[in-house]
Nucleic acid binder design. Sequence first.
DNA 1: CTATAATAGCTAATATAATTAGCCTAAAAA
DNA 2: TTTTTAGGCTAATTATATTAGCTATTATAG
Lengths: 192, 192
Amino acid sequence: MKMGLNRTTIIEMAANIADERGISNVTLKVLAAELGVKSPSLYKHFNGGLDELNKELMLYGWHSLESKITKVAIGRAKDDAIMAICYAYRNFAVEHKGLFEAMQWYNMYQSEEHLQATQGMVSVFFQVLDSYELDEEQKVHIVRMFRGFLQGFSSIESHGGYGNPLSLNESFDFALKTILNGIHDLQGGMGK
Amino acid sequence: MKMGLNRTTIIEMAANIADERGISNVTLKVLAAELGVKSPSLYKHFNGGLDELNKELMLYGWHSLESKITKVAIGRAKDDAIMAICYAYRNFAVEHKGLFEAMQWYNMYQSEEHLQATQGMVSVFFQVLDSYELDEEQKVHIVRMFRGFLQGFSSIESHGGYGNPLSLNESFDFALKTILNGIHDLQGGMGK
DNA sequence: CTATAATAGCTAATATAATTAGCCTAAAAA
DNA sequence: TTTTTAGGCTAATTATATTAGCTATTATAG
């Protein structure tokens, strides 16, 4: 029976499985079962098999994240926009533990495609930073710093790697304020 | 023939394979071949098979990193010590791409053991932070911030995720200075 | 509206790696 | 020297990915 599957449906199901049942359950076997087909059928949609699917899952994740942070940045500016973006990033990672993990697999798929996938998110940062008085190099440093911090913090948090019982919200806030202060210091007057 | 293998030798070989041939080659098959035995023999050392081996590899990595940063922190204090620790962390990640990746797998092995493995590194940070005038909560925030940033930045860098050609050293330096400034601001007088 | 082609599913077969069972001998210990 | 244990092996099993080739449904061309 024709189930009318397509790449998007399949990828979304994979993302779901990753989040609900853990990334180790993202296999053609499980995926096919969830979709009501047999695993060889998936090759009709993903010629490259599991590898290609994982790559697409990664790209899908970065695009989803980009869309989230783009939305929250609308109508906000400066520190307010940055805080919103960062919280959106972190929330995404915590709400999509499995998908977020899949997104980190770019090691195997180090490619132009991946750079482009993250480029969307990077652009949002740059756009917001445009309203500060910073030169281009400074902006690059700042975006790199945010990306590094967000990815690391979210990853550690979502894996339960921060043992101390102290509030993670406060730590996250503290860190963002620290970086923002750093940005303000770079500007002649004060920004905010 | 008895090859005189033991857990340590095997784990070190696994780390080597991860770094030299990529983490996807850390399989019992490849590992056994490199060690000159057949793969079932490895179960004599790792009852839990590949899973247990991966877990031990992760722990081994964190312990190695702890040892590196402990060494570089000796004889240094304050900002100087922190900078040294951070550079040691980043160098480790870049020099041990595969192992560093394995270290991030604590998702599957979320355990008391893992918390303890990273605790070593955390302790070094706390010790250094003791010479600043900070209260305990502030120290926790700061350590979390460093851990998040270091893990994320190193991970992105070692996967070639930062597309822009601008110097990564400068970005890393910029970020560290920014965090250090944040610390100084928390202190009544100035620290350094 | 029919004939044809392409698509998306299926089953059966193959390949690769992990794992288990059970044997065997070198080394260690009694 | 005898016994035990540890660490290797081969053979068999299991699990999943993948390939090959068949078939029916859907879409398209005439």
